[in-house]
Design a binder for these strands. Structure first.
Length: 195
DNA sequence: TGCACGATGAAC
DNA sequence: TTCATCGTGCAC
């Protein structure tokens, strides 16, 4: 791993609390970089270190799903923070967001890439691959992240490293919002998605 | 009820 | 650059 800290036998003790998500979405996006996404499957912890994220700023953000308003699909986005918003893109791949901010703000962080740490089935450089690697699909939509089977963990004192800021990927349709610098990734990580 | 189009990934 | 593949939102 990029930061060769000793890893715990189980990441559950390092799980972040609800308050972690109850902050400004850009702040949460930065806090997620360098932390760990954990999915416990059949007794095994699948773990990836988050190296790339994007922030989506709610209904006013034309690139965000929340800009469609409250619909059956965006229900989870408008709900309480610390929950997973998982959806199908292009009929093929799943993407996972973390709901952030206050309930009703519908702000969220898209998890775009992880560095494989433990028990991953493939590489995780890209939002679709990330979900595939960790075994995340639509069934986890709305799942509480303050739980024992899908959660974010942060090691105390883990140095996140230098962060690169760029426009978000694949949102050219969003007008003025397309160019906003809301994509963040760890500089030099070979596990970020390309483009 | 139908239709256009994705917050992608992989192949050509 | 093209294509796979299907849920969603919106037009009609």
């Amino acid at each position: 791993m990029a930061s060769d800290l000793p890893l715990p036998a189980s990441f559950l003790d390092c799980r972040v609390p609800r308050e972690f998500y109850l902050r400004d979405v850009v702040e949460v996006a930065h806090a997620l970089l360098g932390s760990f996404l954990v999915h416990a499957v059949a007794g095994a912890e699948r773990v990836g270190r988050i190296v790339e994220v994007e922030a989506y700023l709610g209904p006013r953000d034309l690139a965000a799903h929340a800009s469609k308003g409250l619909t059956p699909r965006t229900r989870v986005l408008f709900g309480p923070p610390g929950h997973a918003y998982v959806y199908l893109v292009y009929g093929l791949h799943f993407c996972m967001n973390v709901v952030a901010g206050r309930e009703g703000e519908a702000t969220a962080v898209l998890l775009r890439a992880v560095e494989p740490v433990r028990e991953l089935t493939c590489r995780g450089n890209g939002p679709g691959l990330l979900c595939r690697a960790l075994g995340i699909d639509k069934r986890l939509n709305g799942h509480d992240l303050v739980s024992c089977d899908l959660f974010v963990a942060a090691l105390p004192g883990a140095p996140p490293g230098e962060v690169v800021t760029r426009p978000r990927v694949g949102v050219d349709y969003a007008g003025d919002w397309a160019g906003r610098p809301l994509r963040f990734y760890l500089k030099g990580s070979p596990h970020v998605s390309r483009r």
